[in-house]
């Protein structure tokens, strides 16, 4: 039996301690927002926070989370359902396309802004380079992080020539 806290709730799960956090969250706790992408910590789709630190849940065994606090995409909005600044910026910039990688992107961006409320482009690149987006929304991700940080304001561009 492994005791952990997930999105503020205490849970006990009966699993092999070597099981990656990803599969415990998805299958045992039935929270599907965290995604499986590669299984080897190369794509970031599975990113969750462990005591506030972003980790690749596909390659981190649940034993690592014993007695710690896991935060997933389902746990970053306010309790009243108000979206976090990062989530709201993601909507403002219309970041997601297929959306599959976005839970991981948002978790990485959230961790970045917690540690560094005003990141430079290079710092954004460094923090987000572990998250792959096959729909290629990197430009929008960068812009959304700046908007969430208050560095930039949402803009509308004239695009019809």
């Amino acid at each position: 039996m492994i005791n952990l806290t997930i999105n503020g709730q205490e849970k006990a799960v009966e699993v092999d301690p070597a099981t990656p956090i990803l599969w415990v969250v998805r299958e045992n706790l039935e929270m599907n927002g965290t995604k499986f992408g590669c299984g080897i910590a190369q794509c970031g789709a599975c990113t969750v926070h462990l005591d506030g630190q972003p980790v690749r849940s596909c390659s981190t065994p649940i034993s690592q989370a014993e007695g710690k606090s896991i935060t997933t995409i389902e746990g970053i909005a306010d309790e009243d359902g108000t979206l976090s600044k990062v989530q709201q910026a993601w909507i403002d910039v219309q970041v997601p396309q297929c959306g599959y990688c976005q839970s991981g992107q948002i978790m990485s961006a959230t961790a970045l802004l917690t540690k560094n409320p005003s990141p430079t482009d290079a710092q954004i690149d460094a923090a987000m380079a572990g998250n792959v987006c096959r729909c290629g929304m990197y430009g929008r991700i960068r812009q959304a992080i700046k908007i969430a940080a208050g560095i930039e304001q949402p803009t509308t561009k004239e695009t019809i020539a």
């Binding site: 039935e30 929270m31 599907n32 927002g33 965290t34 995604k35 499986f36 997933t72 995409i73 389902e74 909005a77 979206l83 989530q87 993601w90 909507i91 219309q94 970041v95 997601p96 959306g99 599959y100 976005q102 839970s103 948002i106």
Partner: peptide, 21 residues
């Protein structure tokens, strides 16, 4: 216009094929 499918793609609630339960 803003896309209809985006809000559920920022809070983890969008259901993909792999999320069948």
């Amino acid at each position: 216009l803003a896309r209809h499918d985006i809000p559920e793609k920022v809070d983890g609630s969008a259901v993909f094929g792999i999320d069948a339960n």
